[in-house]
Amino acid sequence: MNIKFASRLIISLTLTFLIGPFLIIILAGLSAGDFMTFPPDGMSLKWYIKVFTVESFRESFWLSMLLAVFGTICALILGIPAAYAISRYDLPYSETIKTIVAAPIIVPGIIVGLALLRYLVVPLNFTVTLALFMAHTALVLPYAVRVVSSSLNNLRGDMEEAAVLLGCGRVGAFMRIVLPNIRSGVLAAFILGFVTSFNQVPVSLFLSGPGVRTLPIDMLGYMEITYDPSVAALSALLAFLSVAIVFVAEKFLGFSRYV
């Protein structure tokens, strides 16, 4: 009886800490007052509406969106062949290669950001946007390689040989046989990469410049000056967006099999 009670308590606490902040943010954004408070100071949708009128939010949202989409696509273009090579060929140092590929998520983001700023942007005069793009690609790459590798490992190699014996070239066999069969893995990698890139803070923090800020950095900056509930409203909207993406992915792709 006591064990049952204890386990329920633990589950309830866990759920409270997982879902609680989310609920608080949603409610705080609904406040009618001028400051972020909880419980909210009256009810209104005005902060949810205001979010869409803030110029810098609109700009940084689009920057984050473009970074997430193109950074992830770029990571997949680099990552799929890498995953293919690692899983199909007996490469020397393949363990080392895997570790290097995983480095961007193992090394703290602050260090990655500082390093990119210090050695790419400052001495080589890279624009901040380009550095951001490269950084996001690098950060998503490990996920791309890992997720695509696991679906490639589930795919038998003799299928490609069969395609070759039926008259396909090696590239043709990859395009016609391998890609269609790892499609869900690639989409899963895309969604994971997209979310990772979109929510990225530490690296982007270093790589911000005048007029170039990703949405999370912009929100940080906004909050330092104005402590109104619009940031809460925006956070809630972003959380809904993430949930919607994952929900759609799960519904159509069986996303959870790959992560």
């Binding site: 038998r156 003799d158 299928m159 040989e161 069969a162 069969n181």
Partner: peptide, 8 residues
Amino acid sequence: FQSYALFP
């Protein structure tokens, strides 16, 4: 092929 290697 032994495993048939059909295209799923």
